[in-house]
Design a protein around this nucleic acid. Structure first.
Length: 472
RNA sequence: GGCUCUAUCGUCUAACGGUUAGGACGAAUCCUUCUCAAGGAUUAAAUCGCGGUUCGAUUCCGCGUAGAGUCACCA
């Protein structure tokens, strides 16, 4: 890696939406490239036509854009003559395939699908692993481009390699086999295409899920046959579903990352959360800005065991990131998530304390808990009276409150002033609740609500007095 | 089944071979204006088991156990 510009890539296949597992790999690749002033490439691995889902590429691009993981090159961002979509690079794979054929490291597969299936079944019955190379033909025919092209493993041996995350790894010869390079439909397999592309694009750091550890010897043997140096591998531990210990995948209810966008999570919070799911810089600090993450990120501190998603922590982290925003940004967002007829900036502080993500604003409005700020509530006179107090005392207290509030200048009807006046009265009473409860209830009509001072200040002097007088 | 990887509070994790095993989320309790929220304080909560190396093991080694991954003309 010395003196070499770091080039990383995120190489998803367009088979549906992106979930946190995919995105975290992209994030780490991005962080590592940015930290080293390197290059981050987006490459679309669409060699399986059957599994392709329309709109996936746009979805992937939108995800990366939302999270701010800008790539230096990609399908929609490439220099002339370059292409980052595998289905449009078939000639390149063929070129490399021919090199392997010439070197004697590739040959056409003479068997039919049924014959292969039988081999496999037989191996299974004999309770031993199936290895295609045990059926390797003695004489290779010429490749007509229609049959599948297989790799001839150059050397059956044990491979050792270094993984930036898992350390020194090794795997025995049983992992090596004559796998398919080019499928009979003319498309390369992942196993072949990604290596060709990584070579062609000068990728020198490859991060991907740890499920690829097992097949790494295969890739190393292809590099050996081709005569190129393999990149630095950094296998990532799996992210597991909440409450489970299974690798998080679409089938296990992994969520579309754009759903988090829809729920109003901050991209910076998402990035912070994902970065810490399987990595941490050491120390007690947990809230990191994007810039701080880039500075602190380090391959060697990536975790080796899988981590569970903890949505509660994501909510907490999002809240912390909201606090990092400017007053103006917070107000703008809260107002945007409020229905049009509720967009009152006085509500911002009350709402802010009660949300962890923007969609909570919408939910608050929908639940009706903000209605009290827009229309006078229905009052139950029984509930107006505090615990062991009496109706008589309650009205007496309310009368005093009204009188005191009337004396406040309209321009000075602030939380601080109201609080000062009301607390003064409350402290003189037998219990504070005896004064505070009726006021809060008369203003809100709710058992649970924000405190009376903030409500009164939002309502304003006129509305406050009107609601108080109404219950008398 | 073969091969591979992993194992610290419920969860995410920290700890040159030497710490009362630390922090965060969540939980509980208390305080701060009756309630709610926010904030503050406090508490409970972990080194998978057994051996070995060592003066000393969460850390190194072996075995066991448990979990995960992988064995496609999918990526």
């Amino acid at each position: 890696m010395l003196n070499k510009k770091v080039v990383t890539r995120f190489a998803p296949s367009p088979t549906g939406f992106m979930h946190v597992g995919n995105v975290r790999a992209a994030l780490y690749e991005w962080l590592w490239a940015r930290k080293n002033n390197g290059i981050f490439i987006l490459r679309i691995e669409d060699t399986d036509q059957k599994r392709e889902v329309e709109g996936s590429v746009e979805h992937i691009v939108e995800c990366l854009k939302w999270l701010g993981l800008d790539y230096d090159a990609g399908p929609d961002k490439c220099e002339p003559g370059m292409c980052y979509t595998q289905s449009e690079r078939l000639e390149i794979y063929k070129k490399y395939a021919k090199i392997l054929i010439e070197k004697g490291y590739a040959y056409p597969d003479p068997y039919t699908v049924e014959e292969l299936e039988n081999f496999r079944k037989k191996a299974e019955e004999e309770k031993r692993p199936f290895l295609y190379r045990e059926h390797r033909p003695d004489n290779f025919g010429t490749w007509d481009g229609i049959k599948a092209l297989r790799f001839k493993t150059p050397e059956i041996k044990s491979y050792q390699w270094h993984d930036a995350v898992f350390g020194d790894l090794s795997a025995g010869p049983e992992m090596l086999d004559d796998f398919v390079l080019i499928k009979s439909d003319g498309y390369p397999t992942y196993n072949f295409a990604h290596i060709v592309d990584d070579i062609e694009m000068n990728i020198n750091v490859v991060m991907r899920g740890q499920e690829y550890i097992a097949s790494t010897p295969k890739y190393l043997s292809v590099y050996q046959a081709l005569g190129f140096e393999p990149p630095l591998y950094a296998c990532l531990p799996h992210i597991m579903a909440t409450g489970g210990n299974k690798k998080l995948g679409k089938r296990d209810g992994a969520k579309d990352v754009l759903d988090y966008k829809k729920e109003g999570y901050l991209p910076d919070a998402m990035v912070n959360f994902l970065a810490f799911l399987g990595w941490n810089p050491g120390g007690d600090k947990e809230i990191y800005t994007r810039k701080e993450l880039i500075e602190a990120f380090d391959l060697s501190r990536i975790q080796v065991s899988g981590a569970q998603m903890n949505l509660e922590k994501l909510d907490w982290m999002n809240k912390e990131h909201i606090k990092l925003l400017s007053k103006e940004e917070i107000e703008k967002n809260i107002l945007e998530w409020l229905p049009e007829d509720m967009r009152n900036s006085k509500l911002v502080s009350v709402i802010l304390e009660r949300i962890s993500k923007w969609s909570d604003v919408r939910d608050m409005a929908q639940s009706g808990e903000l209605d009290l700020f827009f229309k006078a509530p229905e009052i139950d006179k029984v509930k107006l009276v505090y615990k062991n107090s009496t109706a008589e005392k309650t009205f007496e207290n309310l009368q005093a409150v009204i009188k005191a509030l009337e004396n406040i200048d309209e321009n000075n009807f602030t939380v601080e002033k109201i609080k000062e006046i009301l607390m003064d009265l409350a402290n003189k009473a037998e219990s504070r609740g005896e004064v505070l409860h009726p006021v809060r209830y008369a203003l809100s009509g709710l058992d649970k609500s924000p405190d009376p001072f903030i409500i009164a200040s939002i309502l304003g002097k006129n509305e406050t007095l009107s609601r108080l007088q109404k219950v008398m």
